[in-house]
Design a protein around this nucleic acid. Sequence first.
DNA 1: CTCTCCCTT
Length: 938
Amino acid sequence: METISENQITILAGETGSGKTTQIPQFLYEAGYGERGLIGITEPRRVAAISMSKRVAHEMNLPTDVVSYLIRYEGNVTDRTKIKFMTDGVLLKEIEVDFLLSKYSCVILDEAHERSVYTDILMGLLSRIVRLRAKRGTNSLRLIIMSATLRVCDFTENRKLFLDTPPVINIDSRQYPVTVHFSKTTPADYLREAFLKTVKIHTRLPEGGILIFLTGQKEVNTMVRKLRKLFPPVSSTDGTADGKRTPDAAADDRAEEDEEFDNILRGKKARKKASSTKKRKNPSLTIPRLPQIDLDAYELPHADDTEADLHEDDHSSDSELDEDGLDGGDDEANLLDGGDLAEDLGISQLKRNQPLWVLPLYSMLPPDKQQRIFKPPPEGSRLCVVATNVAETSLTIPDIKYVVDSGRQKTKLYDKTTGVTAFVVTFTSKASANQRAGRAGRVAPGHCYRLYSSAVFNDEFVDFAPPEVQQKPVDGLVLQMKCMGIDKVVNFPFPSPPDREQLVGAEQRLLQLEALEEITTRTTLKGGTGESRTQTITRVTELGRTMAAFPVAPRFGKILALSHQHALLPYAICLVAALSVQEVLEEVGLTEEDTSESSKLWRQKRKAWAGTGESLLLGDPMILLKAVGAAEHANSKGNLEAFCTENGIRLKAIKEIRKLRVQLTNEVNANLRDMSLTVDPDMPPPTVTQMRLLRQLLLIGMTDRIARKLPESEIKVKADVRRLRHAYNLPMIDEPVFLHAGSVLRKELPEWVCFQEAFETTVSIGEVGESKTFIRGITAIEPEWLPKFVPNVCNIVDVLEEPQPPTYNATNDTIECYVKATIGKTSWPLPAALVEMPRNMQRCKYLLKFFLSGSIFKKLKPFRKSLLSSPDSVLKQYSASVPRIDAALKVLLANEVYNAARFSELWNVDSKFFLQEYREFLPVSCHDDVARWWPPKK
DNA sequence: CTCTCCCTT
């Protein structure tokens, strides 16, 4: 507390489990920080904010209106709140309203080592806010950064972030020691290794839960199935492993399990035979093959370092090993290779073992199934959790003694220039590996088995995963920062700055969306030479501010900002909410046949939901609208859960969508007067007109996600015809892309589409893997919409006089014209379309024409017959050599006059604006008359 | 004829 009171910023270093999150707020409260303002603590996850607030309230024996939490959709904060736990994004939103955070006496950034985008930004902002508050003197702010020990140098060694290195206080960890065991080698087939290691631990090592880290949901499910077959679960009071299994089914499983295990043994023999015959018969056929992950062909292990581990446990004089009859010196390879007798022995050996209680764990698993890891396993069973990265930080499983770490994780990567995403399995970082190991030492000393060598760990594992802000597009973040008045995002004191390319890309996309505009300023250089330098910066537009007010991605913010017509808002809100929530619909027919019946049904339902005509053209987003509508209807009848399971809809997603609809509806009501929208659980389906408008709105949001069907005439090589028959092209990428098979428009193959996501994946074609790019979330669009609704991504080649010459539209105060336009770097032609004329020299010419003819300001009509140059002559090629025309155009262009409104603006500043230029078009006799009428606005 | 780690306003 002394250090904190004497320093503006303090760094607290301690591992998870050191109790700092619960202790420090209490110390601060007791030291009186609660009387000078709020004590705020940010967490990167909602659950953490809620559970920490409850725990601290309990420990301090204070009510929850004093120790409270605030997350996106809910909270229990009151006027009496002194300690406030919140998600990091919530505090960032508060800074937008109150930059100095004047309500707070102290802010704690918890889990700073996780380097979440919002925590990073908060750190940058708070480093400055603390200084500003100190300058004001009266009510200084304390900042405490809590981080895992290893990563504090990220913050202390950053000169831009903190002027003086803040003091670092180390807190002792409460962890028990974990013995780490590396493998001698690093096999590519980590699934197989994980399986074998788990079998060994379970059959040979003392009791204690096992936690296996794999990369994805599919892997987890396969592993769970394999382990359950080998070690069948026993019934418990609250049902068996999957909660539904009957004793009969369990018996069937046991029969299968025998077969399974036989296969494991035979697998080895069969393969040996195959390889030896191959060698004899055809020695040249030794094509190297990519390692195939095949859990059905497991063989039992070759020599590895588990022997050493066993010896280690031998020394700890555990009697279980002897009971098993497999003492440390026994070579299992011998045992299992030694003929049928040994084979039987091996099987019975495993059968006599205690049951294994195998549970899957991944983020998308329904919450009730996730909860099972917290319940004790059935009496006499050993707990074994097969998990993805959720178990690394988000969920802590009790009673884990053994961790099996594949050393891999799946990461989503974004192509900086194309925006194409890909999921890639990579080695984790050293920090992650240590975090995973730590999960074995929460209740007692534990062991971590790493399925990779120490050499690979040292040489190939990076120290830390790159911070999130360097991994993801920063569009939303840039917009949010610009709204806070940070014009030069490059200069922001990021703990780790996003790379230049990423920032430039984000600005470009925001310019396309018209959330930002370019401002060119001219500054005269010092030195009296009169030299000047132009500088272009981007700044938020009015539209940009409206977009940013909505807590969704900028593209979706724009859709909402433009939906204030034709009673579209309820649909736009529902659509944006559904598109913002990930994984609403469960995948259909993707995995094995076990779900074929229900998945066939789901597919039919979705096809029916898609409808025909405009509805079908709205495509996959239409399915979402219908799914949400139907789910809410089912909910009002009280059978939401059944409806979700029947239709392959994620219950959690539906609940999230509902909350988001409420939040967005409130935001709309707050910003638009005369709006009192409600969330209607029985929203009627959109009309045909509304569906068409929704397609246009989607296109406007998806400016950078447009694709065109590759015409067959453009397929040059005959051999490619089959491969490229259903291919699409993106405007800026050469590689073909394909409609994802899950899309309802899959068979329709519309000429032009916009999409929600493009991702690359490796598809196995025969024996080899080939990378292929798919687009999903498809909506059909009409090409003539492109120049009209997304002019910023089109190239306008020519203004057309046919079918109709350009006209002045008085209602919108714009000039409209038909244009010939193209899109993409290879200039795909677009049909002629009626658009607002681009704001350039040509626009000025037409404006001048309409100005002279009196179509813009009626008061000038009487002068028309006296004009010395006709309105149409302005458009002629020779006009540049007519001085009065040339002079007028130069003035208009220099002052960016493209419509009547701009004239009015300028007349407010200078009422004589354009008077002289106009008089040049008239004989001297009219000049006095004109001056009397000037300015000619109403 | 086919994907998906984890989070957040």
